[in-house]
Amino acid sequence: MTTALNGEQLAEKIIKASPDAVVAVDKGAVVVKSESLYQVAEFLKNTPELDFDYLVNLTVVDYMDYFEVVYHLVSLKHNHSLVLKTRCRDREKPVVPSVVGLWRSADFQEREVYDLMGIVFDGHPNLKRLLLWEGFVGHPLRRDYL
């Protein structure tokens, strides 16, 4: 059984590694600042006892006040999981650091999010639309699109 790691305990570890990165925390998820996202992700991946080597799912929820980027991480070795989140308040030009350098599975998923939600992943090697055609105007999965 995959153990869902306790967000509160994990947040303590993250704070030790990079202070003031954590914004909010609950039992299931840790929310970090978008500026320190890459740093935290690197910590989660490279710490041997955490070893999150498998980014299962990456998606975004549009809460109107802010976008929430959700990362579902799993460690194949320890068989535990974590939900990592980051928030982005700017609707005009939301920017979040790309994690393709750490987990290549983010490649298509970040492109999809950029395509449908309009979030720019800073540092993505090939950020262009994935499902819709070039020249399409707007980002249809936003709540205010239709």
Partner: peptide, 10 residues
């Protein structure tokens, strides 16, 4: 497809 790549691309 090497093991490491397979894990990295999930």
């Amino acid at each position: 497809l090497p093991r490491d790549t397979a894990v990295s691309i999930a």
